[in-house]
C-alpha cells in the first residue's frame, strides 16, 4: 500500500490525517512538524505521497514543496489548506503540487484528493473508503 508522509505543525491535523490514512489502509511513515524537517524526512523516507500544510514555522509548505520537487520531480504532494488560502494553493499547484485538501478534513475529501493524485488506484481506495465510512 502507499507510504504517506504528513507535514503539519498542528497535532490535531496530523492526528486526524494519520487516523484517516490508516483506516483507508495506507502506511503513515513519517510526520514532520515544519518544512525544513519535511525535506530531510522526504529524502530519507521517499514516501509515495506527502500531505503538506502551507503555513508552518521555520519553512512554509510552498518552499518545502519546491525543495522536494527539486530533489525528486515526481514527488506527489497534496496541500492541506483552509479557505482563504486559495491563492497560495494556486502557487503550490504551479510549483507542482498534485492536489489539495480543504479543511475541515473529512474522509471523503482525503479520498477525492488521493483519487486525483493516483487515478490508477482509485478503485482500491473506493473499497477502503467504503469500509471507512461504514465504521465511522
Amino acid at each position: 500500500m502507499l507510504n504517506v508522509m504528513i507535514v503539519d505543525d498542528s497535532k490535531i491535523i496530523t492526528r486526524t490525517l494519520s487516523k484517516n490514512f490508516e483506516t483507508m489502509g495506507f502506511n503513515v511513515v513519517g510526520i514532520a512538524m515544519n518544512g525544513q524537517d519535511a525535506i530531510e524526512m522526504f529524502k530519507k523516507l521517499k514516501p509515495d505521497l506527502v500531505t503538506m500544510d502551507i503555513t508552518m514555522p521555520v519553512m512554509n509548505g510552498i518552499e518545502a514543496l519546491q525543495h522536494i520537487r527539486e530533489f525528486d520531480e515526481k514527488a506527489r504532494i497534496v496541500m492541506v489548506t483552509s479557505h482563504g488560502e486559495e491563492k497560495l494553493v494556486m502557487d503550490a499547484i504551479s510549483f507542482g503540487a498534485k492536489g489539495y485538501i480543504l479543511k475541515p478534513i473529512t474522509p471523503l475529501k482525503i479520498k477525492q484528493a488521493i483519487q486525483k493524485t493516483f487515478p490508477k488506484i482509485a478503485n482500491e481506495i473506493e473499497e477502503n473508503y467504503l469500509s471507512t465510512t461504514l465504521t465511522y
Partner: peptide, 28 residues
C-alpha cells in the same frame, strides 16, 4: 475575495502546462 480568486484561477489556468493543472486551478 471570491472575485479575486475567480480571476486568478482563470488566469492561472490559461498559463497552466497541462490539463491536470487546469482542472486543479479551476477547481479552486
Amino acid at each position: 475575495y471570491e472575485k479575486e480568486i475567480f480571476v486568478e484561477a482563470i488566469e492561472r489556468s490559461l498559463k497552466a502546462d497541462n490539463s491536470f493543472q487546469i482542472d486543479m486551478f479551476l477547481s479552486l
